[in-house]
Design a protein around this nucleic acid. Structure first.
Length: 524
DNA sequence: GCCCGTGACTCAGAAATATTCCA
DNA sequence: GTGGAATATTTCTGAGTCACGGG
């Protein structure tokens, strides 16, 4: 690298850290002062006190960046055969880490690799972004194996595992402390197909299904609480209403060394706006600093209550913009209260319940809306499914960044659509001309049939384009993987003769193996 | 008893990689 | 049939939730 225009020699360790920074050249982190400041503090320490490099502004990392890019290109330029050979070798080397023997069963391991050193990439305005995540060694890692199992080898001679445990009350295979956030742990777990994960998945959905039997009473309860003279009761009544209606996350309190995000219990006055006569406008950063923006119609007592909660606290003191809307309880208190309503109930159960019941309802509505629904084309039914999936994703606020290629590919699609429209116009003219010619020219019926085919193709393409535009910021996968009971989907497929492979990819098929034999009449 | 930190698990979007599609 | 762009899948690891245990 260069400093003040001159080449600088770095030790291997210094070069590694410089490379972590160089590789991030094209990311938005480079514009964030917190990132730059944290990185410089870490880099400065690695450089040592008397180093010529005295600051980041005269550093030029582009030689490193160019080198890394050249390496990347070299890899890309390998022939198909060379790439395949490398992959075979890699797979063979990794094979033995991919399975674990658990109670005599062979199970898939999830993440078997330890996280390599890098710069911490926190989401949103994370105070720790840019800090150096240190290399983790066997001496940092606690492993969990059977009492009689041989202690696995590691590639660092002279080191021992931090600890070897035999704990059959937990499901992790290994853990270590995160170096950026020492109070947090990183774990190695079994894969999504494992018995442990499958069992807890089923449990999760069964708990959410149980809420169905309690929800009427819970609603009656919270409606009554809206009129309570006890502020805590009243606030909880409104909070549970939000969970029920909007599927918000719990919102636990956060430390100053984390990004400033909120959930239901940590909503601040600045996050809600009462818009007469009965609308509430939510605007806040939730998990992963994803913005939640939603204006909802609420019942009048809720509107009045929220208006009051944003003005004064339980003791009558005026609230500021940064004060909490619900000042009489936190997420733990709320969960405790929910336990009293239903065994095992917690805030997140509402989210699972809401997502699953919504999918179930939307699919059923579509089936009921048409005679002989099962006779529709598979593509049309899949489009219906995706529409329902989209509703759920929007409910859960599952967003994604607009794909980098979206604009260009959308322009191409528009161009294609226009070309099709031109073609149709030409065909229409040709058709009329043929009709006028009365048998002397081309056969008008042949043109008409060609025309109608083109029109159908256009309609399909237009629909596809609209869906694409519609979904550019919506992530469908998260709800499919985590929130919608797979039995709803599988039963729907069975009822309507849609191959399950159309809806679930290979990993989801494996992950949801426990749900495959559900009967076609299953309703959530 | 309660509260608060800790531990262990689920859920999240981006990035990397694999596959498919289309000119 | 081919190559590269578009799209789908997989990997990665950060960011939540929530129960529990110990002081």
């Amino acid at each position: 690298m260069l400093y003040d225009g001159r080449p600088v020699e770095l030790t291997a360790e210094q070069e590694e850290v410089a490379s972590m920074f160089a590789i991030m050249k094209e990311t938005d982190y480079m514009k964030k002062p917190t990132f730059l400041k944290n990185f410089w503090e870490g880099f400065k320490e690695v450089l040592g006190r008397s180093h010529v490099i005295k600051g980041l502004d005269k550093c030029d990392f582009s030689p490193i960046y160019d080198h890394l890019m050249a390496e990347r290109d070299k890899k890309k330029a390998l022939t198909k055969e060379e790439k395949a050979a490398i992959k075979v070798q890699k797979d063979a080397a990794e094979a033995k880490y991919k399975h674990a023997l658990v109670d005599g069963r062979q199970e898939q391991v999830g993440n078997f690799r330890v996280e390599p050193p890098s710069l911490f990439r926190g989401r949103g305005e994370h105070p720790k972004m840019g800090k150096i995540k240190q290399r983790v060694y066997p001496r940092d890692i606690t492993i969990n194996i059977g009492r009689d199992a041989p202690i696995p080898e590691h590639p660092y001679p002279g080191q021992r595992w931090k600890e070897v445990r035999h704990d059959n009350t937990v499901t992790w295979l290994a853990y270590w402390r995160d170096t950026v956030n020492p109070k947090e742990y990183k774990y190695v777990w079994l894969g999504a197909t494992s018995s442990f994960k499958a069992e807890s998945d089923l449990l999760k959905y069964e708990k959410a299904r149980k809420l169905k039997d309690y929800i009427d009473d819970i609603r009656k309860n919270y409606k009554r609480d809206w009129g309570s003279s006890d502020v805590r009761r009243k606030q909880m009544g409104v909070a549970v209403y939000f969970l029920d209606k909007l599927a918000l996350r719990a919102g636990h309190e956060k430390d100053d060394d984390e990004a400033d995000t909120v959930g239901c219990c940590t909503l601040k006055v600045e996050n809600v706006e009462c818009v007469p006569p009965n609308h509430i406008k939510f605007d806040f950063l939730g998990k992963d600093s994803i913005r939640y923006e939603n204006t909802v119609d609420v019942e009048v007592p809720v509107y009045k209550a929220v208006e009051a909660f944003t003005k004064v606290d339980a003791r009558g003191k005026r609230k500021g913009l940064r004060d909490m809307v619900f000042d009489t309880f936190d997420a733990t208190d709320l969960n405790k209260e929910l336990k009293a309503l239903m065994d095992g109930l917690s805030v997140k159960v509402f989210r699972t319940y809401n997502a699953s019941i919504t999918l179930d309802r939307l699919l059923a509505e579509m089936e009921e809306a048409e005679d002989a629904y099962a006779g529709k084309t598979v593509d049309a039914k899949k489009a219906d499914y995706d529409r329902a999936n989209k509703e759920v994703a929007i409910l859960c606020n599952h967003q994604r960044a607009v794909p980098k290629t979206h604009e260009t590919s959308m322009a191409k699609v528009t161009e294609k659509l226009n070309a099709m429209r031109e073609e149709i116009k030409a065909l229409e003219e040709e058709h009329e001309a043929a009709l006028r010619a009365k048998g002397k020219g081309k056969n008008p019926d042949a043109i008409a049939s060609k025309l109608s085919k083109k029109m159908t193709a256009l309609e399909r393409a237009e629909l596809q384009a609209a869906v694409k535009e519609d979904l550019k910021t919506v992530a469908l996968g998260t709800s499919k993987i985590n929130y919608m009971d797979p039995r709803i989907t599988i039963a729907w497929c069975k009822r309507n003769e849609v191959p399950i492979e159309k809806v679930f990819n290979k990993s989801l098929l494996n992950k949801f193996h426990w749900a495959m034999d559900v009967e076609s009449g299953f309703r959530f």
